[in-house]
Measured scan of single mutants.
Amino acid sequence: MLDDRARMEAAKKEKVEQILAEFQLQEEDLKKVMRRMQKEMDRGLRLETHEEASVKMLPTYVRSTPEGSEVGDFLSLDLGGTNFRVMLVKVGEGEEGQWSVKTKHQMYSIPEDAMTGTAEMLFDYISECISDFLDKHQMKHKKLPLGFTFSFPVRHEDIDKGILLNWTKGFKASGAEGNNVVGLLRDAIKRRGDFEMDVVAMVNDTVATMISCYYEDHQCEVGMIVGTGCNACYMEEMQNVELVEGDEGRMCVNTEWGAFGDSGELDEFLLEYDRLVDESSANPGQQLYEKLIGGKYMGELVRLVLLRLVDENLLFHGEASEQLRTRGAFETRFVSQVESDTGDRKQIYNILSTLGLRPSTTDCDIVRRACESVSTRAAHMCSAGLAGVINRMRESRSEDVMRITVGVDGSVYKLHPSFKERFHASVRRLTPSCEITFIESEEGSGRGAALVSAVACKKACMLGQ
């Protein structure tokens, strides 16, 4: 009897593995994704193909990295998701002549009506938060230079001027797309009239992360975010950046690689679950690469896999709870928690219980395998993109072996128990001629924006502006 049951459990697990095998990517698959990513990057950089390229390769006008001589107080704003952060950054000489960066910050959550109302409502709310922060720190009387981390696709015309191309991540505030974001912020500050600010720089969160990590390690020339969304930036040779005049030196390019796949480059790798996630998203047909990796989508992918296993009578005796059938019910943090389970399955059992399920031991094991399959594919897909960037940098610099540091931020990278190990191992397999160091950014977005502002202020002083 026991043997029969054991055989049935083994057969069930084997069927589960057959279904989950769809998520496995072979090294040849990853090399294919990497080569296609490089081709799209090239198209994004070139003037004649930029418009139709899915990977936009947006110039950021960040050319210099901090040298350690900029000092002063800077205000930093960070808008990239449902939370908005205001930070005071003091850049100065530390002990023994070292450079020191001290920060104080406060988080504000953005109400739904500000995210989806008008641009005026959104930026009025942001300036209200700045006003509140300055009151708390008794700094209303000071006109501070301000660095703005704005983590949406922007076409820069200068370091302090950028046109919002399109909202992502659930934002829909009308009247912002096609307009200068810094102008919208300046107008809102003017409307309030109770404080003055000098907006000197606007950067993407990947750029802010790279600059913040450069402060720790001067070989950091790539910034990457794996959180709600997924994106990367890197220092490109100016001669390859056709959208900006000049051939000397390097400029940081914001790849906006989340949109890779929007022209069909990933079609052969998309599964039924991916198509369902895409169809029910706020932007169907867009940001397809990001939807395979980002935390906004990972939990939902797992939920759809679990429903398939229920329908195949391989999980929960073929019956799903009402909660499990509800879109968004299986949160991405559950994926991390399930994979963090120590082996007694308590954590998995508790999560499934909150979803109205009474799982068996085998159910718990199957749910864990589903989570591992989805998150491992995410790590491997992400590795193909980064390997594409790094191999490109090595080739354009004609280096036999390139040493490089990548600064990384984002909740999936930082909080998932195995993502970074799987990701690092896969990147290294795909970049055999590179020695890569990964560092995690601390308060990256805010500190990085302030350091970019410090560079901009120093330049302005040198130019006598």
Rank of each mutant, 00 (worst) to 15 (best):
N240V: 13
M381Q: 05
V226Y: 05
D217M: 15
G356S: 13
S433H: 13
G81H: 00
T342G: 10
M462P: 14
R155V: 05
V203C: 04
D267K: 05
R155Y: 07
I439W: 09
C461E: 13
G295Y: 03
G44T: 01
D29E: 12
K420T: 07
A282L: 14
S263D: 14
A370R: 04
D187V: 03
R377Y: 00
V374F: 00
E93M: 12
L185A: 04
G285Q: 12
I439K: 13
M139C: 03
S321F: 07
R43D: 04
K414C: 15
F330M: 13
C364I: 15
E22H: 06
G175M: 00
S151G: 02
N391I: 13
L271M: 07
G175L: 01
R377D: 01
L266A: 03
T362N: 11
E300G: 09
K169H: 02
E272R: 13
E372L: 06
S426T: 10
N180I: 09
G81W: 02
R63F: 10
E236N: 01
V181F: 00
V241A: 08
L2D: 12
V412M: 15
L352V: 06
I225F: 03
G223P: 05
K458N: 10
E70A: 10
R43F: 13
W257A: 04
I293K: 05
I110M: 07
A378L: 03
L357E: 11
E290G: 02
F438M: 06
D124T: 03
F171V: 00
M393P: 04
S353M: 11
S321C: 13
Y297W: 07
S263A: 10
V389I: 11
E300T: 06
A282I: 11
E95Q: 13
D78T: 10
R333D: 14
K172M: 03
G92E: 09
F423I: 13
K190M: 08
E272S: 10
R428W: 10
M87P: 07
E95S: 12
I159H: 00
L304E: 07
V401W: 08
D278M: 15
Y61K: 07
E245Y: 09
P359T: 08
S375K: 01
K172E: 05
I159V: 02
I436G: 02
I404A: 07
R428I: 10
K32T: 14
M197L: 14
T149P: 04
S375T: 11
S433W: 11
G97Y: 08
G72W: 03
C371S: 08
L309D: 01
A329P: 14
L463Y: 11
R325C: 12
I404G: 04
C382W: 00
R327Q: 05
A449S: 06
S426M: 12
V338A: 08
I19N: 15
L315M: 09
M139D: 06
T255C: 05
K90G: 12
S353I: 08
E331F: 06
R368A: 10
T361Q: 12
Y349D: 05
G183Y: 04
V207L: 02
K190G: 12
S151L: 04
S373Q: 10
Y289E: 07
